[in-house]
Every structure is written in structure tokens, then in C-alpha cells.
Design a protein around this nucleic acid. Structure first.
Lengths: 145, 145
DNA sequence: GTAGGTGTAACCATTATGGTTACATGTACT
DNA sequence: AGTACATGTAACCATAATGGTTACACCTAC
């Protein structure tokens, strides 16, 4: 099991838009950087737009960030692309036997623990901004010269 | 996306075995508490056995914990049932365009962040023991009386 | 040797993913 | 007006993972 790469691609899209501020970031341009189909990018752009992270308009080429990069966290992207539902990182088997003491109480007992684990993970995502990612990219790019 | 319920079922199995110490926990008995097929339970028991968490023997009915419940963490179970591979909670799109500065460096930049998030989640799982779960169950069971 | 367990392999329906094509819609420009 | 080119979506597909099911080989105790 793995969290969908939509998340990684979403980060890629936003980073590229910011990196390419002077140019126009069309779905085709972004798709060539991500190495996928423009329609896939447009679907994701739709989600990012809905979440208020980017501005795109039908018929007008290019997307722009709706916020400054330090104000977008990876958690924002994570929520936007809908890879994990709230409290549903871990799935629980349904309908355990209510006539068994363990079966009857296992869900209620486990769920808060699962939620705590999920929140710890999401907290880390919330502490990283798009600006951090962009800096990471440019650092690596410069040290390669 | 969700982490397979094998994890929750694995916890259920271990908890039930401990709860039912005086009785014999056969795959059929466990299956009736989990509400699934005995073969599913046996598959999971195989994983738990391989991980050194339980003792089962062909032809002999019933499984026992191989360790005391305070010495088994949810992280142990998580690893045993193989729901998430190391460093692979988040998947990354492969083959981004190496001719684009962003495409070239995005993977290297993102991966450590993803790993950090995953580790934070796993750390929480490592801090909870089977004993904790068992206590939770018995507490709930008693307050229901 | 029989009964009743465990250990596995084979198979299946369902679902999510990522990709692809196609086309309706919208804007800018001539 | 009409053309070029973009976004927004719907429909469809191959692939993989999941959870379940059946079947049977193997082992132990009686």
C-alpha cells in the first residue's frame, strides 16, 4: 500500500509554477516536466484550484499560485489532492463479532490510536512549506554546477 | 487510499489470543471474533509467526503469544503484517523530466520529507503496546456492565 | 487410521490508480 | 465572425492490491 503519487505530483506542480513565475505554466508544460499526460495535470490542477492553492481560468493559458510559497504547506497539498481521508489512513475491519468482548470493543479502542498516528504524520507535513521545497530544489541545482 | 485492514486484524488476533489465554485460540475461533474466513486468519497468523510474535504449530490447535503483551508494540504488528514498506508510505511519480531543474531534483528533495512524516507516524505506533490495547478493551467491557 | 487442526496455493470480485482519448467550453486575436 | 489554443471533464482501460473463498496437502493427538 502506498499513498497515491498524486500528492508528489501536486507538490511538483506547485513547485514548478513558482519556479517558472516569469513564464506561463500550461498543463502541457507541466506535464512534460512531470512526464505524464496533460489531462492528468489538469485534473490535479482542478483539485489544487478548488483548494484555493492556484489560480487557473478556462481559455487562459497558465496557472499561478494563489498564495505565496511560504504560506502553502505540504499538508495543504495533501488535503487538496485528496489522497487520505480524515481519520482514514488506517482501515479497520468492519463488523467484528459483537458477542465477543474483544470483537465488541476493538474498533473503539484502536481508532484513537490510529488517529494519533495519522495526526503525527500530518503534523510533519504541515511544518514544511512549498518555499522549503523550492529552496531544496535550487540548492541541489546549484551544487550540481 | 488506506492502509490495509490486515493491520487492524493483526492487532485483533494478538489481543484475542492474550485475552483468551486459558482457552485455545484456533483460526476458526479467531475468525468468528473477527468475522471473516479462517483461511484469512491463518494467512495472517503465518505472518505474525514469521515475525516472532506468536507460536503456532501445524496439527496443534491454538496459538500463543511468543512474547508478553507489554513487549509487543503496534509497530511490531505493523511490520509483521507488511502493510507499508520501509520508506514507501508515500509513492513518488517516477521518471520526471531530467532536463527540467524541478523535474531533475524533485524526488531527492521530497523523499526525506516523506520519510520524516512516515517515521513520525511509526514512532507513535511504537509507543503503544499490546498491553495498552488489552487494557482499553477490558476497561470498555467493564464500564459497559 | 480418523478427526481436526495448520499451512498454502489457486482463483475471484471489487476497487483504486494512472493513463488515454475525446470533446465541450472559454478567451484572445485577427 | 472565425480561428487557434487553452482549460474542464467525461468515458474508458490496463494494472495492481485487497479481502474473500475453496480446496487440499500436511501434521498431531487420540
Amino acid at each position: 500500500m502506498s499513498i497515491s503519487s498524486r500528492f508528489a505530483v501536486g507538490i511538483h506542480i506547485l513547485t514548478l509554477i513558482d519556479f517558472n513565475q516569469e513564464g506561463t505554466s500550461t498543463s502541457e508544460f507541466i506535464a512534460s516536466s512531470v512526464n505524464t499526460n496533460p489531462a492528468v495535470i489538469r485534473k490535479l490542477m482542478g483539485m489544487l484550484k478548488k483548494a484555493g492553492l492556484i489560480e487557473v481560468h478556462p481559455g487562459i493559458a497558465g496557472a499561478k499560485l494563489a498564495k505565496k510559497s511560504p504560506d502553502i504547506t505540504l499538508f495543504d497539498v495533501y488535503k487538496a489532492v485528496n489522497v487520505v481521508q480524515e481519520n482514514e489512513l488506517f482501515s479497520v475491519h468492519d463488523k467484528p463479532n459483537p458477542n465477543c468482548p474483544v470483537g465488541k470493543n476493538i474498533q473503539e479502542t484502536i481508532e484513537p490510536l490510529f488517529t494519533a498516528a495519522q495526526l503525527a504524520m500530518e503534523k510533519v507535513l504541515g511544518s514544511v512549506t512549498l518555499e522549503d521545497v523550492l529552496k531544496g530544489i535550487t540548492n541541489k541545482e546549484n551544487t550540481n554546477c
